[in-house]
């Protein structure tokens, strides 16, 4: 649909929030805990913080939770009964306060979960998520969305994008039918579009590189000393993958409790040494350098080659959270 622009006053945002709560929606919004800000389940508007560049954790868990039941079972000597988890009713979720990079990440996630074999659990969750994003008016040294075809006011993946104006009120860009429905239901809160332009209220984020150029460069960089050099300090944990809004590698694990149990899809990370270890003891990605290469190539070469969309939205979370200060931007710009 054609984007519709409206103005929404600051106090009306709270009314909109309360409307959603009143309608039984589960809201995930940025909430401060100590010095960090997390996407968390929020029921009171007062808990929502506006003081964040991006949250520490990404919003992917609303569609790809860290532990997802794919089925449960009951077993006896005679029979095994499988109970399909996809028959569950998944919650109506509102993602409130996502940044344009968070919203953009749903595109590559969706590509992965629907390539050849549609994952109906992922899709059922996705259908029930309403994405209400807020443009970025400031950024930090870790942000690089503009290098990967994103931007601080990018509308991709959002249902409505709010941009804070100099008056303290917000421009509301209604991007999808889902977003339009919310506006229709709350017509009185939305006013005619403001005069003030959106662009002057957005953060300036330097374009450090061009995704297409990096993609071309990476075609011939499989064997290169840069992978070992840039990953030397890597500790081999999974924090980069787990805070990443796009990373979707997973493990499948069974948990039994007597004759009943579940099969779970759990987050996993290519940074772990055992991720690709064969039963024989052979490991195709033996070193941390090989694992770091996989992470970069997967995001900046393999994914865009397959689907035209990179596996990185430039949110910088992985670099901010890395306990060894491995910086993805530093690696990519050094190529």
């Amino acid at each position: 649909m054609q984007t519709e622009n409206h103005l929404i006053r600051k106090p009306s945002l709270e009314k909109l929030f309360n409307y959603l709560i009143g309608n039984g929606k589960t809201i995930y919004a940025p909430k401060a805990k100590g010095k960090l800000v997390f996407f968390d389940n929020v029921t009171d508007f007062g808990e929502v913080t506006e003081d964040y560049i991006v949250t520490t954790n990404s919003a992917k868990s609303v569609v790809f939770p860290r532990t997802e039941k794919v089925f449960s079972y009951k077993k006896s000597k005679e029979s095994t009964e499988i109970i399909d988890a996809a028959d569950n009713t998944y919650p109506d979720v509102v993602l409130w306060g996502s940044r344009p990079c968070d919203a953009a990440a749903f595109i590559p996630l969706n590509n992965t979960f629907n390539e050849d074999y549609p994952d109906i659990i992922f899709n059922k969750r996705s259908q029930k998520v309403l994405v209400l994003s807020f443009s970025c008016s400031y950024s930090d040294d870790y942000c690089f969305c503009t290098s990967v075809n994103g931007g601080p006011g990018n509308t991709t993946g959002s249902d409505i994008l709010f941009t804070r104006l100099s008056t303290g009120d917000y421009l509301a860009e209604v991007i999808t039918e889902k977003g339009k429905l919310l506006v229709t239901e709350n017509n009185s809160l939305f006013e005619p579009k403001p005069e003030e332009s959106k662009e002057q209220n957005l953060a300036l984020i330097k374009a450090y590189f061009n995704q297409e150029e990096i993609q071309t460069k990476l075609q011939n960089l499989f064997e290169n000393p840069v992978w070992d050099e840039k990953s030397r300090a890597c500790l081999g944990c999974g924090s980069c993958a787990y805070v990443c809004p796009v990373c979707s590698c997973f493990d499948i694990q069974d948990e039994a409790h007597g004759h009943k149990g579940t099969r779970l899809r759990c987050w996993d990370s290519c940074g772990f040494g055992l991720f690709t270890l064969h039963t024989s003891g052979h490991n195709p990605r033996e070193t941390q350098g090989a694992r770091w290469r996989q992470r970069i190539l997967h995001k900046f070469l393999y994914m865009p080659n397959k689907t035209k969309v990179a596996g990185c939205v430039g949110c910088g979370r992985c670099s901010r959270s890395c306990p060894a200060d491995i910086n993805i931007l530093d690696t990519v710009t050094s190529l």
């Binding site: 992965t112 074999y117 590698c249 997973f250």
Partner: peptide
Amino acid sequence: ENRMKCGFGKCGRCN
């Protein structure tokens, strides 16, 4: 015969 979990191109191990 790389290590696999899903078998359908999503779990990210066997590439």
